[in-house]
Simulated scan of single mutants.
Amino acid sequence: MWIDSIAFDEMLGEARRAYPLETGGVLAGYIAGNGDPVVQHLIGPGPNAQHIRQRFHPDHDWQCRKLDEIFEMSSGQTVYLGDWHTHPDGSPHMSWLDKRTLRGIARHRDSAVARPIMMIGAGGVERWTWQVHRYSGDRMVGLSISIDVLELRPFGHEDV
Protein backbone atom coordinates (compact mmCIF):
# COMPACT_ATOMS: atom_id res chain seq x y z
CA MET A 1 0.00 0.00 0.00
CA TRP A 2 1.26 3.43 -0.93
CA ILE A 3 0.55 6.35 1.42
CA ASP A 4 1.19 10.06 0.95
CA SER A 5 3.92 11.12 3.39
CA ILE A 6 1.86 14.13 4.55
CA ALA A 7 -1.12 11.86 5.33
CA PHE A 8 1.21 9.44 7.13
CA ASP A 9 2.64 12.30 9.23
CA GLU A 10 -0.90 13.42 10.13
CA MET A 11 -1.74 9.89 11.26
CA LEU A 12 1.42 9.67 13.35
CA GLY A 13 0.67 13.06 14.90
CA GLU A 14 -2.85 11.97 15.86
CA ALA A 15 -1.51 8.70 17.32
CA ARG A 16 0.96 10.62 19.48
CA ARG A 17 -1.65 13.20 20.50
CA ALA A 18 -4.16 10.59 21.67
CA TYR A 19 -1.65 8.27 23.40
CA PRO A 20 -2.25 6.35 25.71
CA LEU A 21 -5.79 6.15 24.31
CA GLU A 22 -6.83 4.58 21.01
CA THR A 23 -7.58 6.77 18.05
CA GLY A 24 -8.12 6.27 14.35
CA GLY A 25 -9.88 7.38 11.23
CA VAL A 26 -10.45 6.81 7.53
CA LEU A 27 -8.10 6.22 4.59
CA ALA A 28 -9.08 7.73 1.23
CA GLY A 29 -7.46 7.35 -2.17
CA TYR A 30 -7.70 5.01 -5.13
CA ILE A 31 -6.72 1.54 -6.31
CA ALA A 32 -3.85 1.65 -8.83
CA GLY A 33 -3.96 -0.34 -12.06
CA ASN A 34 -1.76 -3.04 -10.49
CA GLY A 35 -4.20 -3.43 -7.57
CA ASP A 36 -2.15 -1.50 -5.00
CA PRO A 37 -4.15 0.81 -2.71
CA VAL A 38 -2.85 4.40 -2.82
CA VAL A 39 -3.78 6.54 0.20
CA GLN A 40 -3.85 10.23 -0.64
CA HIS A 41 -5.87 11.59 2.29
CA LEU A 42 -6.29 10.83 5.94
CA ILE A 43 -9.45 11.62 7.88
CA GLY A 44 -9.03 11.75 11.65
CA PRO A 45 -11.37 10.56 14.40
CA GLY A 46 -13.59 13.67 14.38
CA PRO A 47 -14.44 16.18 17.11
CA ASN A 48 -17.02 13.97 18.85
CA ALA A 49 -15.02 10.74 18.80
CA GLN A 50 -14.71 8.80 22.05
CA HIS A 51 -11.25 7.52 22.95
CA ILE A 52 -10.58 4.89 25.60
CA ARG A 53 -7.57 2.69 26.33
CA GLN A 54 -8.47 -0.32 24.16
CA ARG A 55 -11.12 1.02 21.81
CA PHE A 56 -12.33 4.15 20.15
CA HIS A 57 -15.60 5.18 18.57
CA PRO A 58 -15.22 7.63 15.67
CA ASP A 59 -17.41 10.61 14.94
CA HIS A 60 -18.90 8.73 12.00
CA ASP A 61 -21.12 11.55 10.69
CA TRP A 62 -18.22 14.01 10.67
CA GLN A 63 -15.97 11.46 8.89
CA CYS A 64 -18.65 10.85 6.23
CA ARG A 65 -18.96 14.59 5.57
CA LYS A 66 -15.17 14.89 5.21
CA LEU A 67 -15.07 11.89 2.86
CA ASP A 68 -17.87 13.41 0.76
CA GLU A 69 -15.89 16.67 0.51
CA ILE A 70 -12.76 14.84 -0.65
CA PHE A 71 -14.79 12.79 -3.15
CA GLU A 72 -16.37 15.93 -4.63
CA MET A 73 -13.09 17.88 -4.75
CA SER A 74 -11.47 14.99 -6.66
CA SER A 75 -14.39 14.68 -9.11
CA GLY A 76 -15.06 11.19 -7.77
CA GLN A 77 -11.49 9.91 -8.14
CA THR A 78 -10.70 9.68 -4.41
CA VAL A 79 -12.79 7.13 -2.53
CA TYR A 80 -12.99 5.29 0.77
CA LEU A 81 -10.31 2.57 1.02
CA GLY A 82 -10.58 1.52 4.66
CA ASP A 83 -9.81 2.53 8.22
CA TRP A 84 -6.82 3.08 10.47
CA HIS A 85 -6.47 2.95 14.24
CA THR A 86 -3.94 2.53 17.02
CA HIS A 87 -3.17 -0.12 19.61
CA PRO A 88 -1.28 1.91 22.27
CA ASP A 89 1.51 -0.15 23.86
CA GLY A 90 0.20 -3.14 21.89
CA SER A 91 0.76 -5.01 18.66
CA PRO A 92 -0.05 -3.95 15.08
CA HIS A 93 -1.75 -7.31 14.54
CA MET A 94 -5.50 -7.58 14.10
CA SER A 95 -7.72 -8.47 17.03
CA TRP A 96 -10.83 -10.62 16.50
CA LEU A 97 -12.87 -7.39 16.60
CA ASP A 98 -10.63 -5.81 13.93
CA LYS A 99 -11.15 -8.84 11.68
CA ARG A 100 -14.90 -8.77 12.22
CA THR A 101 -14.97 -5.03 11.50
CA LEU A 102 -12.96 -5.45 8.29
CA ARG A 103 -15.31 -8.19 7.09
CA GLY A 104 -18.29 -5.96 7.93
CA ILE A 105 -16.82 -3.14 5.85
CA ALA A 106 -16.33 -5.52 2.89
CA ARG A 107 -19.94 -6.68 3.16
CA HIS A 108 -21.41 -3.19 3.59
CA ARG A 109 -22.80 -2.10 0.24
CA ASP A 110 -22.33 1.64 0.92
CA SER A 111 -18.58 1.25 1.48
CA ALA A 112 -18.23 0.19 -2.19
CA VAL A 113 -14.93 -1.58 -1.52
CA ALA A 114 -14.70 -5.37 -1.79
CA ARG A 115 -11.20 -5.59 -0.30
CA PRO A 116 -10.95 -2.84 2.34
CA ILE A 117 -7.74 -2.12 4.19
CA MET A 118 -7.12 -1.62 7.89
CA MET A 119 -3.91 0.03 9.01
CA ILE A 120 -2.94 -0.50 12.65
CA GLY A 121 -0.28 1.42 14.54
CA ALA A 122 1.21 0.05 17.75
CA GLY A 123 3.54 1.80 20.12
CA GLY A 124 3.84 4.91 22.19
CA VAL A 125 4.76 8.56 22.04
CA GLU A 126 8.29 7.97 20.75
CA ARG A 127 7.99 4.88 18.53
CA TRP A 128 5.20 3.46 16.39
CA THR A 129 5.09 0.34 14.22
CA TRP A 130 2.48 0.22 11.46
CA GLN A 131 1.00 -2.77 9.66
CA VAL A 132 -1.47 -2.79 6.77
CA HIS A 133 -4.08 -5.54 6.49
CA ARG A 134 -6.35 -6.13 3.48
CA TYR A 135 -9.48 -8.26 3.54
CA SER A 136 -9.27 -11.05 0.99
CA GLY A 137 -12.40 -13.04 1.78
CA ASP A 138 -13.97 -15.63 4.02
CA ARG A 139 -12.98 -19.26 4.31
CA MET A 140 -15.22 -22.11 5.42
CA VAL A 141 -18.53 -20.25 5.02
CA GLY A 142 -17.47 -17.19 6.99
CA LEU A 143 -15.99 -18.99 9.99
CA SER A 144 -12.48 -17.80 9.19
CA ILE A 145 -11.48 -14.49 7.64
CA SER A 146 -8.64 -14.32 5.14
CA ILE A 147 -6.35 -11.27 5.49
CA ASP A 148 -3.31 -10.22 3.45
CA VAL A 149 -0.56 -8.13 5.06
CA LEU A 150 0.67 -5.42 2.69
CA GLU A 151 3.98 -3.59 2.56
CA LEU A 152 3.70 0.06 3.63
CA ARG A 153 5.33 2.44 1.14
CA PRO A 154 5.23 6.18 1.93
CA PHE A 155 5.63 8.57 -1.00
CA GLY A 156 6.22 12.29 -1.17
CA HIS A 157 4.94 14.71 -3.73
CA GLU A 158 8.31 14.59 -5.47
CA ASP A 159 7.76 10.82 -6.01
CA VAL A 160 4.54 11.25 -7.99
Rank of each mutant, 00 (worst) to 15 (best):
M1S: 14
D4T: 03
S5Y: 09
S5Q: 12
I6T: 15
I6E: 14
A7N: 12
E10K: 09
L12A: 10
R17T: 12
Y19V: 10
Y19H: 15
Y19A: 09
L27A: 04
A32Y: 01
Q40D: 03
H41N: 10
I43T: 04
G46N: 06
N48S: 13
Q50A: 10
I52L: 08
Q54H: 14
F56N: 03
H60Y: 01
H60E: 07
H60D: 02
R65Y: 05
L67H: 06
E69V: 05
E72P: 00
S74E: 01
Q77L: 07
Q77W: 00
Y80W: 15
D83C: 04
D83A: 07
W84C: 03
W84A: 02
P88G: 04
G90M: 11
S91V: 11
H93V: 03
M94I: 06
W96L: 13
W96S: 10
W96R: 13
G104F: 00
I105A: 05
R107H: 14
R109Y: 12
D110P: 04
P116W: 06
P116H: 06
M118D: 05
I120P: 01
E126N: 12
E126T: 08
W128Y: 11
T129S: 06
W130S: 05
Q131G: 08
V132G: 01
V132K: 00
V132R: 00
S136M: 10
M140A: 14
V141D: 14
L143M: 07
S144H: 05
I145T: 15
S146Q: 13
I147K: 03
D148W: 03
H157Y: 04
